[in-house]
Computed example of a mutant assay.
Amino acid sequence: MQFGVFTVGDVTKDPVSGKTLTEGERIQQMVTVALKAEEVGLDVFATGEHHNPPFVPSSPTTLLGFIAAKTSKILLSTSTTLITTNDPVKIAEDYAMLQHLAEGRVDLMMGRGNTGPVYPWFGQDIRNGIHLAIENYALLRRLWREDVVSWEGKFRTPLEGFTSTPRPLDGVPPFVWHGSIRSPEIAEQAAYYGDGFFHNNIFWPADHTARLIQHYRSRFEHYGHGAADQAIVGLGGQVFMRKNSQDARSEYRPYFDHSPIYGGGPSMEETMEQTPLAVGSPQEIIDRTMTFREKFGDYQRQLFIADHAGLPLKTVLEQMDILGSEVVPVLRKEFDALRPAHVPEAPTHESLKAAAERAASLESVSPEAVGLEGTR
């Protein structure tokens, strides 16, 4: 089970101090959070991709490449790579380059984003969103798996004898999660390829999330990748913790009320009841997170949003300390004890490389040798 944090990189006024960070300060804050995540023993740091104010992470590979140079263990990912508006050729090149620089500590999450105007900014039509996601990803897979690609589709110019460089590290492409909060077509896409499915269930009630995950699991099995409970699932969430729940809720309330995500909607208590938002003591966070397994089955990755709504860096780092020392160690132990032996762990570069080597070894054994082996 992997635990980590993700950022959406919003530049939001602190409603308590009244301070708003500059873009440069916010970018440096994200780097500090990533380094802290490794320090406290988390497994994953992920960044979103946005191309509009008040967000700053418009170039995830630049940010993650910088963090890769300053870390040695933590896995670097995206909490959305826009498969719809980025050229799949550029995605193939950028993330293969990052994979080499980070020595394999890279995977990524494909998504369509939540900002409609981004489509015309990059020359696309939002009405083609699902079709772009399907076509672009099909091309991306070929670019990573075939040395020379000739291809023609609907949404970009054809390719003739094209080789994407650099090639994936060790010939093993980065693992891909497909992120969606409402589209069964994306869950279907993840299942078809045997990729991971990530439901960033910040806003959604559990029954909605469960239906989409169950669709992915059943189709994963349908396409022959394994049993439904062996499908690779990730979940999002958000927490805010203090020693006791009263202090946590009192301190977090102004940030919730002015949040670009939550502000102006249901109250904090209503949101906590209806979504995975958890504000309270470390034990309350543990108890709430453990209910995810009951509702959605065994899963492989849990990411918490760490640093949004203008929270001061000092507070964010305190949250990371609590996650690393009091919450995640307990969750790891509990989830690992409950996970059946046949349910896989989250893929890593090392596990994917080992699987590729095993497959190559089996392919190298001639049918005659297999037959002779069977007679001994």
Score class of each variant (00 low, 15 high):
G4M: 07
T7C: 11
V8T: 12
T12Y: 05
K13T: 06
L21S: 02
L21T: 04
T22G: 01
I27R: 13
V33E: 08
A34W: 00
F45R: 09
T47H: 11
E49M: 07
H50P: 14
N52T: 13
N52Y: 12
P53T: 10
L64A: 05
A68V: 12
A69D: 06
A69K: 09
K73N: 14
T78E: 07
T81H: 11
P88V: 00
A92C: 01
A92G: 05
A96V: 09
E103H: 13
V106P: 05
V106N: 02
M109K: 01
T115H: 11
G116N: 12
P117H: 11
V118Q: 04
P120G: 08
P120V: 09
D125Y: 14
I126P: 08
R127N: 05
G129P: 12
I130L: 15
H131V: 07
H131M: 06
A133S: 11
I134K: 12
Y137H: 07
R141S: 13
R145H: 04
E146N: 03
E146C: 01
S150M: 02
F155G: 05
F155W: 02
R156Y: 01
R156P: 13
R156H: 08
P158E: 14
L159M: 01
G161I: 00
F162G: 00
T163Y: 00
P166C: 06
L169V: 06
L169P: 14
G171E: 07
G171Q: 11
V172K: 15
V172S: 06
P174D: 04
F175C: 12
A187P: 09
E188L: 12
Q189G: 09
A190E: 11
Y192C: 15
F203N: 01
W204Y: 14
P205C: 08
H208Y: 14
T209E: 00
A210K: 14
Q214S: 08
H215N: 13
R217I: 09
R219Y: 15
H222D: 11
G224C: 07
G236Y: 14
G236A: 08
F240R: 08
F240D: 05
M241N: 05
R242M: 10
Q246L: 15
D247W: 07
A248Y: 04
F256N: 04
D257I: 05
P260K: 03
Y262T: 11
G265S: 04
P266C: 07
T271V: 13
M272Y: 05
M272P: 03
M272Q: 08
S281N: 13
E284C: 05
D287L: 10
R288I: 03
T289F: 09
T291Y: 13
R293V: 01
F296Y: 04
F304Y: 05
A309T: 02
G310R: 02
L311A: 11
T315R: 06
L317A: 03
E318F: 03
K333G: 02
E334A: 13
L338S: 11
A341N: 09
H342C: 11
H342G: 06
H342V: 01
T348Q: 09
S351K: 01
A359C: 10
A359M: 06
S361T: 10
S364F: 15
P367V: 02
A369R: 09
L372F: 12
R376H: 12
